[in-house]
């Protein structure tokens, strides 16, 4: 056996990965920020403090917050149900959770338009109650929830599966109620996976374009989230504006990435202890 071989293989693999990531990720990211700042800081500030730009940032944050909140509840419940009980159709449900990962977001948007739009049998009732979903904020939230719902439960399920039911059963035998068991036994165990799921879910929610695009109606200052607003600016040849708002979204994504790495680091330390 030639002992040099592994070293060469190692160098080649690392080299290819680095080049690939540089071309695919680092260069474009730097270019976005560079283009946004090239016409000068004043133009940049003007572009991002534009009334519609500010509203799109605000809407993105609100939608992300709501979608994450809904998915926290949904994700915890689903993960709990799928790991602690065995029942008919469990496999089917488990597969169903992954649907948003495989279905194109644009189809997700269309599904909601069909379900809640004018042609739906639900429409007269919604109209009567004064609930507007399509081309309104609730629709955007719905679409975002749909697209991001696998993230939290998918992170938690493996951890819960690995833990088994013994600790919970032991606590239940000692008289602990369901909420006490969750708070004192289950949650400390899934805390890091849960937070990691929240981070992934937020990142995805902020950047969602396809499904939201179908449902929003692109009303400036009303239903435009950041990705939609960027698209409009870009289509209107306002490259400076598009890149300026993009750079804000990129910075938000990078912040979340840093949060993710910090969490990963902490959870590793926790397990090693």
């Amino acid at each position: 056996m030639n002992r040099e071989d592994p070293k060469i293989v190692k160098a080649v693999l690392i080299g290819i990965t680095t080049v690939f990531l540089t071309v695919m990720l680092v260069l474009p990211l730097i270019y976005v920020i560079y283009t946004a700042l090239r016409p000068g800081l004043e133009t940049f500030i003007a572009a991002v403090t534009d009334k519609y730009a500010l509203h799109s940032i605000y809407l993105t944050l609100i939608v992300t917050l709501m979608a994450v909140a809904v998915n926290i509840v949904f994700g915890l419940y689903t993960a709990w149900a799928l790991t602690k009980f065995s029942f008919r159709g469990k496999k089917f449900l488990s597969t169903l959770i992954d649907l948003p990962l495989t279905v194109s977001p644009i189809i997700a948007g269309l599904i909601f338009v069909l379900t809640f739009g004018r042609q739906s049998f639900l429409y007269p009732y919604l109209n009567e109650w004064g609930i507007k979903i399509i081309f309104a904020v609730p629709g955007i939230v719905l679409a975002t929830v749909f697209v991001t719902f696998p993230f939290i439960s998918r992170e938690i399920i493996p951890v819960l599966n690995a833990q088994g039911k013994d600790e919970e059963e032991a606590a239940a035998l000692m008289g602990a109620g369901a909420f006490q068991i969750f708070r004192q036994i289950t949650f400390p165990h899934i805390k890091w996976a849960f937070m990691y799921g929240v981070v992934l879910c937020s990142a995805r929610a902020m950047g969602e374009f396809g499904a939201v695009s179908v449902l929003s109606g692109h009303l400036r200052g009303k239903t435009n989230t950041m990705p939609l607003y960027i698209e409009i600016l870009y289509q209107g040849y306002d490259f400076t504006g598009a890149f300026a708002v993009s750079s804000i979204l990129v910075v938000m994504a990078i912040l979340i990435l840093i949060a993710r790495n910090l969490l990963e680091h902490r959870s590793k330390n926790k397990f090693l202890k």
Partner: peptide, 25 residues
């Protein structure tokens, strides 16, 4: 009182808190 094969000790609690769990409940 039940002793599990895996012991099922609460891994995020100290020995004291493990034993005190039922009494606190």
């Amino acid at each position: 009182g039940f002793v599990f094969q895996s012991y099922a000790l609460f891994r995020y609690m100290t020995v004291f808190d493990n034993i005190a769990f039922g009494l606190r409940t």
